[in-house]
Design a protein around this nucleic acid. Sequence first.
DNA 1: GATGAATGAGTATTCATTCAT
DNA 2: GATGAATGAATACTCATTCAT
Lengths: 241, 241, 241, 241
Amino acid sequence: MNSDVEGKDGPDGAGDLEGAGGRPLRRDAELNRQRILKAADEVFTERGLEATLDDVARQAGVGVGTVYRRFPDKASLADALFEERINTMAGLAVQAQEADDPWEGLAGFMLTAAEMLTSDRGLRQILMFAAHGHDRTHYARERMRPAVGKLVERAQAAGQLRPDLSATDIPVMEFMLGATAEYARDVRPDIWRRYLTLLLDALRPSRDGYTPLPVAELSPDELATAMRTSPLKPSGRGSTE
Amino acid sequence: MNSDVEGKDGPDGAGDLEGAGGRPLRRDAELNRQRILKAADEVFTERGLEATLDDVARQAGVGVGTVYRRFPDKASLADALFEERINTMAGLAVQAQEADDPWEGLAGFMLTAAEMLTSDRGLRQILMFAAHGHDRTHYARERMRPAVGKLVERAQAAGQLRPDLSATDIPVMEFMLGATAEYARDVRPDIWRRYLTLLLDALRPSRDGYTPLPVAELSPDELATAMRTSPLKPSGRGSTE
Amino acid sequence: MNSDVEGKDGPDGAGDLEGAGGRPLRRDAELNRQRILKAADEVFTERGLEATLDDVARQAGVGVGTVYRRFPDKASLADALFEERINTMAGLAVQAQEADDPWEGLAGFMLTAAEMLTSDRGLRQILMFAAHGHDRTHYARERMRPAVGKLVERAQAAGQLRPDLSATDIPVMEFMLGATAEYARDVRPDIWRRYLTLLLDALRPSRDGYTPLPVAELSPDELATAMRTSPLKPSGRGSTE
Amino acid sequence: MNSDVEGKDGPDGAGDLEGAGGRPLRRDAELNRQRILKAADEVFTERGLEATLDDVARQAGVGVGTVYRRFPDKASLADALFEERINTMAGLAVQAQEADDPWEGLAGFMLTAAEMLTSDRGLRQILMFAAHGHDRTHYARERMRPAVGKLVERAQAAGQLRPDLSATDIPVMEFMLGATAEYARDVRPDIWRRYLTLLLDALRPSRDGYTPLPVAELSPDELATAMRTSPLKPSGRGSTE
DNA sequence: GATGAATGAGTATTCATTCAT
DNA sequence: GATGAATGAATACTCATTCAT
């Protein structure tokens, strides 16, 4: 599940943490970081974001203090997880470009991404709630964008995708599916597939023409800022607000 | 926004006093009830369901105890609000049946319903989170269902709607739009219109045929049970879980 | 009063540090634990179990959170106190076995136990109200039982105690004395001595024979379960019941 | 159960309320008073003193306000109930004087009184907790005392009762039984019978002589003041304290 | 007189975050 | 660096008592 994490660091294999000052984080420190991310993944996946950082720490086999040393606060941890997944998704988008059929590439990506998204409660909640706009997610988003953009353009060029669709529409639709999955999680966890199919039908080019889309797509920036208020601080425990 | 409140009293149009003796006392109590609902509406709309009942009480200008006298707990207050809106929506669905063009009836309803839904943060969150299955919402849901069912059937009979669509798909799609609106509330509160258009395109009958929908629609019961765990108690203060 | 606290750590006499590695950290934590127990003792003794955990915390000079870190809830704190005392009592019962005269052993134990019980309002209330059956008290009770049993048997074997008396009658009688002390605490805190004497007279074997006791004694299990509903939650704040 | 209430008013059949100013409480007012007492009896018997005054009012079929018009606060209501029972008990004590055998008279009274006491959770709790020293209970206590005194003296004169027993010991022993019944209510509600038997054995005169009772009996005044702090205000809701 | 609506201080408990060891 | 003990503000909900109608 985290297999793509390593790959994201890019050229320098030393890890992207503290790229500035130098010290690339001691071996065991980085190990702890991974341990925590893995634990957070497991705990959040099972119980959602409501899970306590103490729980995460326990699962990771470290003290809470250690978690705080690596991640300034709970939201940052969620963000880091989010970043990881976006990276994975970005990878999927890149891979999808290799599909022979452009439409299959796009549709396949949307399906795989949705499967990933909907199978992880924590991720769904992060998507739906978590505070973003943090710097750390920026890089990941930036990597995602062009890959998806290419999938879209390619399909449009091939006449397989309605031309008024924009690259930023894709993540929004993924979000819609994630929300639906969260909504129906106890009754019909897979009902989102129904709506993915529906949406894909809507994306098809049509001899009948298209209803003009009434508002412009989200700009990449807008997409990035879409969520601001985090339910991670619903009770405002730490903040003076 | 609260125009349908009166209607909830049921069959007798006598208003909100107990039909029986008509004791004068009820007057101020009902007034307060309205005041509380209004306050809850305002507070939830602005700050979401995280808002405290103390906040609601303050906004309403009454003591917390009074809020609790009218609504056994926070969820019930949310439910009451929800019920009100569903009633309004049910009314819209009934009205929409009178449209000359079946498709216009359905599409118009979806638009109006979405406008209502997306203009009220509290409602959106209730939709997305609130615990249901409570008795009070049952009547409202029941009234909604057949009206929407008729809109769907009529449009399908007229060959204006893909035949594999089910009545329960409508509220789910509304939910998707609501979630999207919540998601983008600070950036582009109206972006949901883009996706409504997309979805409506997907609903059109097509010479090209339809991709078979991969999973069955939600049954009315499933739809009603869709949300079980309420994030109204996200911190689990009262429950031992 | 807390002299037996050390004893509760069980078999290993090493003291209160985790027997394993002996991490230095534990030190202050255990210190605080003692501080809290002492504070609880004082506060409960003075104001009874109605006292708030906030009060206990204040008296201990720690935050409420700390109290909750050590004791999951109010009942547990009461239990811990209770356990301590039962341990002490168990010790007394063991000691009493060494008395030369079996009757003196039993009577002496009953006196000492009652003195201990009646001198501490918190303990009296715990006895009278606190929820038990918790694991922590089990060990203590188990240790108490056989010691008292031996006192009883020995006195009966010596013909100094009416033969129809059972070991479980002892704690019940102690409870009666505790209740009486609580009852008369402000008027005549020592009036219980009068009734202890009376009861002891009733326990004496008699040439006149005994009135058959009309109902069977409590079984050890029944004794342990005697109190189920704890007035620790008299207002039912946390429980839905 | 309340059949003795009427009898207690003594010479003037008008009722003892407002004996001073005159107005003996309007017929319906007195009716309400009785209704409330009956309701309190039922509710407290079943659920104990924790029951709400709202519950009592509902059971009585009146508004809370009415309850407060008749009884200044919750404690007063409990007291009134207590008074009633003491009156009944006083009646029992009077009746018991007519027994042919003096011992039977006393023992029978103790049994009947205990049965009454232990069959009513509310009464037990009032006995164990309720605030007394209120004026209203004084008369009842005064009436009780001589009747019990006579039972005791008669039995002592007949050589059937240990001579060092005092009249005030009787209610204390009753209290002990009541406390025991409360203690074991869920396990063995009748276990108190065992200890009543034991106590009665202790009261018997003995050829062996008696252990001198170590402290003097409670004086009637002390008995009356025995309980001062009421758990009726454990949470101090209304009081500023 | 009666009603029941309103009040709000009070309680147990949780958990993000800090900091001494 | 790591640990986990300490902190305390914050929350939902209750109920004795008052008072306008």
